[in-house]
């Protein structure tokens, strides 16, 4: 009987020790938790890009795009999003990348910029060939853009990171909308 209670006491001690270790480990994890940023990764042809998740209100399947005369070729037309009429930009045209032929994976990102001064936030659909992923990336894993980027991407690229062994170029949607509105792109 005394042997048994001694063994039980040791087990309790072991459990207490394990729990203590676990607590310490959890605290350690909290201490090293890295800041992350949510990104929507998408493809235009074979090139991967990303927008901040904060700038993508919705991911829509490719739907009927109504042509409006008088628009530049990069402005494909408008779509009806639950009664709201929104423009659709051929994003590849602005980035100097040809779009792949239409497929079931093609999508429209509903991009939204922050409100500027007295202006309401700007919204527009952005046609992409496919959406790869929506995920949180550690900020530390995003490197600054290099000088070797093509001209169309300079000024738009905010960083580069690896995704499944491929380089993804993170883009500034606020700048993209601003430049497009001012006919700079």
């Amino acid at each position: 009987m005394s042997t048994s209670s001694t063994t039980k006491g040791r087990e309790e001690d072991q459990l207490a020790a394990l729990l203590e270790q676990r607590r310490d480990a959890d605290q350690g994890i909290l201490e090293v938790e890295a800041a992350t940023v949510k990104l929507v990764i998408f493809a235009i042809d074979e090139s991967l890009f990303a927008f901040s998740g904060a700038n993508v209100a919705e991911i829509l399947p490719l739907t009927t795009i109504h042509f409006v005369p008088g628009c530049p070729p990069s402005l494909e037309g408008v779509i009806n999003v639950r009664g709201d009429i929104t423009s659709v930009i051929r994003l590849g045209d602005l980035l100097g990348r040809p779009h792949a032929p239409d497929s079931r994976r093609a999508a429209i990102l509903l991009g939204q910029s922050r409100a500027e001064d007295d202006e309401a936030p700007m919204r527009s659909g952005l046609r992409v060939d496919r959406v790869e992923d929506v995920l949180d990336i550690p900020e530390a894993s995003i490197r600054p853009p290099t000088d070797t980027l093509p001209e169309q991407l300079r000024g738009l690229a905010t960083g580069l990171f690896q995704y499944r062994g491929e380089v993804v170029i993170a883009l500034d949607l606020e700048r993209l909308f601003h430049d497009y509105r001012g006919a700079l792109r």
């Binding site: 409006v68 005369p69 009429i85 497009y180």
Partner: peptide
């Protein structure tokens, strides 16, 4: 839509 209004030529 604002971007269309800005770039529309008609």
């Amino acid at each position: 839509p604002p971007l269309l209004a800005a770039r529309q030529g008609l």
